[in-house]
Amino acid sequence: MALIELQGITKLYRSGDTEFAALRDVDLSIGRGEFVALTGASGSGKSTLMNVLGCLDAPSRGSYRLADRDIARLSRVELAAIRNQFIGFVFQSFNLLARTSAAENVELPLIYARCAPAERRRRALEALDRVGLSSRAGHHPSQLSGGQQQRVAIARALVTRPPVILADEPTGNLDSQTSIEIMRLLAELRDSGITIVFVTHEADIAAFAARKLVLRDGIIVNDIRQQPEAAHPAHALSGGTHDPGH
């Protein structure tokens, strides 16, 4: 059984009299442990798809099953619980709370999981250790580099041990060296069994994925299985797009 199962997902935006479909009848199935890149031009609907997957935005039509739960029928309260328990979200702009230490940022999902303070702190430090930032637990986001901030955000996504991590342009605000480090970290997480879906418009970043989905005008136009290119940074830097027909 697939972890993520989309059928006929349509997302309409209305502005005045005109209706605009950001997603049109998208069918998609993602299995456990997959490493998926969502690519496409700006406005192709990849971020909208990401937000629907992350239960941040509700589709206008269609069905969405996540870990055998029918997401489309859930209330706001139930969706909050799904985001908390089943999904770790990583954003392009990190979205850490300012003036709040790295450890406290990582603890945040556990607060809403009603986890006891001591347990929370223990698991937050564990997650920070996993992203290689245990020495920065007390630092505030403003005292951390972009790459370190994104690691904190990844630790926050990990801390509730969700089956899936969704990353919306996780390397969009980072330089290429740091981007590769972040993608390697995600690849490691995938190796530990977490399903990872990320959005990118950079071919060399998409190359880290084992499966590449190309969106255009709200439709998945290409679904490519490819050999992930995570092993060597030199390759990743020079590596081009894998041709669909390859």
Binding site: G54, L56, V77, A80, R83, N84, L97, Y112, A113
Partner: peptide, 16 residues
């Protein structure tokens, strides 16, 4: 507002 969005994204209930 952004902070509220972050909290909601990581699973805060409306009641929280």
């Amino acid at each position: 507002t952004r902070e509220i969005g972050i909290r909601m994204a990581v699973g805060a209930q409306p009641s929280d």
